[in-house]
């Protein structure tokens, strides 16, 4: 049971990495939600120029590999004296923002148009109706695909290892190469990812349940 001993021995090290992976994911997703919301608003603005801007952004993100985006952000931002951690966070946020924009747009457009009309008919402005009536309902519908995107972001954060951020995957490959035993460390790191994903899934399910309780 070599692998178990290694698992226990390396726990403090991997735990640090797990915290860093967790931070990378949470901070980048948090920023990505704002980016996503912003571009979703552009997409539904019915102003052609703004729609094009949003389309261009989504095209750029979808059309290039995430690892390329992370390298561009890393080399671009570190040259401006921004830390490696933050350049990767911004790269991930830039990437996930596009997918989240599409999730929000879909959710907003799935709310029946009568809700906007009802708000407007009461004298509420379009912005106020969006904020008070449409978005609360849309966020509920967006939650399942958002949860999915969070999990994808968590796993994608492993690409940060390529630019030297010492998160989970980086620890695994470094240890693997030092000890000439990649397999053991890759299996161990897979367990950490599974635990993190499980944790995310449970949290998302709890929030979903709580939200659906307050309606219907």
């Amino acid at each position: 049971m070599d692998i178990l001993t290694t698992f226990v021995d390396t726990f403090p090290m991997f735990f640090e990495g797990m915290l860093l992976t967790f931070q990378l994911t949470i901070v980048s997703i948090f920023i990505a939600i704002f980016i996503g919301l912003f571009f979703a608003m552009l997409k539904i603005s019915k102003v052609k120029v703004l729609e094009w801007v949003a389309d261009l952004y989504i095209f750029l993100v979808r059309g290039t590999p995430l690892v390329v985006q992370i390298f561009i952000f890393y080399f671009g931002l570190t040259s401006l004296n921004i830390s490696g951690f933050w350049s990767v966070v911004l790269g991930l946020a830039f990437h996930n923002g596009a997918y989240i924009a599409e999730i929000f747009r879909g959710a907003i457009q799935s709310i029946e148009s009568g809700q906007m009309e009802a708000g407007r008919s009461l004298g509420m402005s379009a912005g106020l109706t969006m904020r008070r009536i449409i978005l609360p309902q849309a966020s509920r519908r967006a939650l399942p695909p958002l949860g999915n995107q969070f999990i994808i972001a968590l796993k994608d954060s492993s690409l940060a290892s390529f630019v030297g951020v010492y998160e989970l995957f980086n620890i695994a490959t470094t240890q693997g190469s030092i000890n000439y035993d990649y397999m053991t460390y890759l299996l161990i790191v897979a367990v950490y990812y599974l635990v993190l994903v499980l944790l995310f899934t449970v949290i998302v399910n709890l929030v979903e349940k709580k939200m659906s309780n307050s309606e219907r």
Binding site: G114, Q115, A118, R120, S121, G123, Q137, S214, E215
Partner: peptide, 28 residues
């Protein structure tokens, strides 16, 4: 928006706000 405050509207399909209680619908 100001004009619409003076002209109330009731729709065929009600369009109540489903995420708000009855009284919250009215108070909003």
């Amino acid at each position: 928006n100001e004009i619409r405050q003076r002209v109330g509207m009731v729709f065929q399909h009600f369009h109540l706000f489903p995420h708000k209680t009855v009284i919250q619908n009215i108070m909003e």
